[in-house]
Amino acid sequence: MIELASPQAASKFRSEIKPTWCPGCGDFGVLNSLQTACATIGINPKDLVVVSGIGCSSNLPGFIHSYGMHTLHGRGVAVAQGVRLGNHGLTVVATGGDGDGYGIGVGHFVHAVRRNINMTYIVMNNQIYGLTTGQTSPTTTKGVKTKSTPGGNIENALNPLGIALMAGASFVARGFSGDANGLAEIMTKAIAHKGFSLVDVLSPCVTYNKMNTYAWFRERVYKLQEKGHDVTNMESALKASLDWDQRIATGVLYQVERPTYEEQDPAMAEFGPLVNHKLGLSDNDWKAVVQEFM
């Protein structure tokens, strides 16, 4: 058990802007848990950068007191990696939704996972496109009727945790926004993890997803960590990622230590955070490089 920071401690991450999400939206829980997790770790808001894509959930950077970027649909993870590579002294958290990260941005997601840049990616997975008023998403259950699939969705839902595991993730977790403390604990572990961490959050859309409601999830979620789950066992993690219809695993599915991108990049390993580098070419370097071209 992690001793979580108090709401008062977490309040330093509160921004002046009130979230614009629908009352009851799962994303409120995600925001609160993220603020608690950051306070628990003891991050200074000036050293935190929260980067999002586009969608309801991607408005989150505006609601947390830190540096942030609100970017393009699907591109938040790419921008966030750039922020972290530009200054790896910063704590970088990317946030977004299932359409953003598993639909239009799925390419960036997979490659970010395999790179193992030390950052956290939180996906508020509500299995629907909310901001565009209710079309099917990559995680919409097969058969579900949405505005764009009036006869029922005929595509299979994507398994983000399985994809992350197969892409070589060093940290994969799932949380439920109806369990604030459990989610804050997972996020704390994710942000503290050295390497790329994925937290897929079951975050109900109370307006457009009438199937995957809080009640629906409450009947199914269980905590892996209470079942003696071995987080270093890939097979058990994959098995847990396949849970869905009957029961849904939450908690850390997989966590191993691997060298981060920052540790292995030749320039960053040699010089430290890019942002502090001395710029330009010295006279000696210049002489040598001119000779190279001779």
């Binding site: 950068v49 980067v51 970027m69 970017t71 393009l72 591109r75 790419a78 921008v79 966030a80 990696q81 750039g82 922020v83 972290r84 590579l85 530009g86 200054n87 910063l90 390419g107 960036h108 997979v110 490659h111 990049d265 030749p266 320039a267 960053m268 390993a269 040699e270 010089f271 890019l274 942002v275 580098h277 001395k278 710029l279 070419l281 370097d285």
Partner: peptide, 30 residues
């Protein structure tokens, strides 16, 4: 790269390339 301290990041596509560059720019890197 390690001689001049410049990160050369090959990306999964050009969309990632420019978005990463923008992210790095936001952090204060040229």
């Amino acid at each position: 790269s390690s001689k001049y301290g410049i990160v050369m990041k090959q990306c999964e596509d050009e969309i990632a390339s420019i978005n990463m560059a923008i992210g790095a720019g936001f952090s204060g890197t040229r």
